[in-house]
Write a protein that binds this DNA or RNA. Structure first.
Lengths: 233, 233, 233, 233
DNA sequence: CATGAATGAGTGTTCATTCAT
DNA sequence: CATGAATGAACACTCATTCAT
């Protein structure tokens, strides 16, 4: 069975300890502080961008003072990177073993996995992270690398695995797996940006993300062509 | 014939005239100035982002002083918007008449149009604009609206027209046209961001944009499925 | 005899009691605390200056928390003044009675007294205090006054007394005593600053403090002049 | 003849050009700005110390805004170092040739040279520089080195030259020249600190600097001893 | 009593924008 | 017209001091 636990891998990173004094037993009374700060920072970074977000605002939204923020994060940049690391949601993962137990068609597994990921993040703060990574990767190369390593590559890995199974089983044609994975992924990526970037400003086209994702996968599976299609490709 | 002129729509906006002093000779000596400034601004905005670009740098790169820049553009924000308006390249457009003269399969037209657009911008400064729009649309709603109106909607229009023709001719199945257009478009969008955002930081996966675009369109046309596919969709 | 006890006057001030809570057991468990804090503060103030020293560092070096420091000293400024008062080493003092028992020449007494003082402080933390007083007297007038009262005036008193004896006994010419005392003292003052301020940064001239002090006193006693000298002065 | 020009070497350093754009002819209309800033900074650094001086104050005292200050000096530290370099007054220098033309006794030359230097700086802002160097050399080692190189070593050089002449001519005894130079110099150094640091806070002893310097030199020349003095030293 | 998390006034510094020359 | 010196609001960040636990 695919359960949320087995399938979703939310990366939880250890929160930063305020300048750990070497031999302090530290009975952390409140984990709350850094968490609240990260939450506020996520919200503001996502909605205004890195440069336009004031650390004071982050602190205020978290209900603490500027000084407190700097107690937990040594700089604005460190706060930013912590936000990205904290909230980055890796793409749905199916272990090989789990994949083997599934008997559904690969096309159905694809849809299930991608829709599951979408549901996980699409309507939440964290759904703005990809846009943030896109926006700031120029100035923060490390987060681009982090995103590639933690989100993109695992995502491609999962999709590739399903594709591979589908091809082995004869359900799919033999196609270049990395490229096909990107074709599938591009729809997700597009929708995520669309919802965060353009939807608020667009009267049209209205898009139902769920419907689009299903459509994207179905169309990729069955093709546009009307006739029996064994194209040279 | 599809010529660059007929196909490409570079929006040329009236450049801001330096606040016409009453008895100005009206002999526009140098149009060069605003153009050079826009070019420099494009380069810097694209490579460093809006916030990280200093107006001083823009002026210096254009070979003028800060004061001169502000003579032509009343503010950094205005400069930014002018850059976006100036260099936004609308998606390839085929007029109805031209479309009618083409007898190639719709799938081939799609590939031709999208590859053409890609070639036009992918390796140039202007190719960085979509990323910039994505990054800054939160703080500059007007450019998001502008981008939707000038790039996305025309692009969808063209793709939709080709799809529509393919469906009418029986080449394609009857599918939801807007959604299918987005499936096609999402590949372009994905590749553009990939090249600008992640490629510089990724050792892997290596992607050949041309090959990917072809693959994306071909796969969408013929589908992943091995068997004759009349899916319920 | 000149003993360390009789000669050296280390000012011990009553250390600040932590704001006596009403029913305090009165059993002073640890006198250690303020002493350790003062020691740490001396070290840091002397090596980094007042402004560059963080109370946190002082507390850490003393092995206590910031809060504890403020329990003993109401402010950084108070800590600073306490350090100066605590460690200020008054110049060697010879009581009148003791002076009377000494039969050595005044020039020898001078050398003995000044070298003794030098040896007492020159290689220790406390030797940095005069520089600190010089540096901070502008912002802490009280310590300047304290230094004048506790160090300079007693020092001049002692030197003046020896000079006076030398003049009475016919060993010295009749000279203005305060000025002559300053001539003698200036060599000490100069050497102290030199060692603390410039020696660490100077490759040259190398100076042997002991030799210089002896030389300074000898030269002042015997003069530069080659011929029998009864100058008009 | 010893004229102010030949004898006094006020180090004038080139004022910093604001971020020199390579090929700018720069018709410096007003040298005034950096000069005024340096003057204000000298005053404030000298009277309050480096840390206690606010760049805003410096700017205000110079009649400009904070931004203007940073146009001329990239940082507070750079301003500070510029002040030291600008106003450092090297000790009086007598060229060898000039020294040879003088027939006065060496003792008189010494007094003339040192008094001249004293008069040059004692009652001016710049007279506070030595104290500043003493105070801040811990945190700004470069200024200590600069001071040693530009003030102390030349000063010792001059004094040493006069001493050497006096010894060659038989006027002075043969003594260690560097040490003797320091004995002479220490009086100057002492007086300078005294006037800047303690005099404002001392009711007593009152000191007449001129008289003290004369006394210091005379006493060093003729010695304290009453009897014909050919001490072993 | 000791602690160190929390505070926020205060600092150096940046940079878009203005305007006298 | 072009210039770049001048401006000052705004920012990230520091650190002495307080106080709940």
């Amino acid at each position: 069975m695919i359960t949320d636990q087995s399938v979703i891998n939310i990366r939880t990173m250890s929160l930063p300890e305020p300048a750990a004094t070497p031999a302090a037993p530290r009975v952390r009374r409140k984990d709350a502080r850094p968490g609240e700060l990260l939450e506020a920072a996520l919200h503001l970074f996502v909605s205004k961008g890195y440069a336009a977000t004031r650390v004071q605002e982050v602190a205020a939204m978290a209900g603490v003072s500027k000084g407190t923020l700097f107690r937990y994060f040594p700089s604005k940049q460190a706060l930013f990177e912590a936000v990205v690391r904290q909230y980055m949601v890796s793409v749905i993962q199916l272990g090989d073993a789990e994949l083997d137990t599934r008997t559904e068609p690969a096309s159905q597994l694809l849809q299930e996995a991608l829709l599951r990921w979408w549901d996980l993040i699409h309507s939440q703060q964290v759904g703005g992270l990809p846009k943030l990574v896109v926006s700031e990767s120029e100035n923060f190369p490390s987060i681009a690398q982090f995103y590639i390593r933690e989100v993109i590559q695992p995502g491609f890995g999962l999709i590739g695995k399903i594709l591979s199974r589908g091809m082995r089983s004869g359900e799919f044609r033999n196609l270049d797996i990395p490229m096909t994975a990107q074709s599938l992924w591009s729809g997700m990526s597009y929708m995520m940006l669309w919802e965060r970037v353009f939807a608020p400003h667009a009267s049209e086209p209205r898009v139902d993300a769920h419907a689009f994702i299903k459509h994207h996968i179905q169309t990729l599976c069955h093709g546009l062509m009307a006739a029996p299609n064994r194209g040279s490709n």
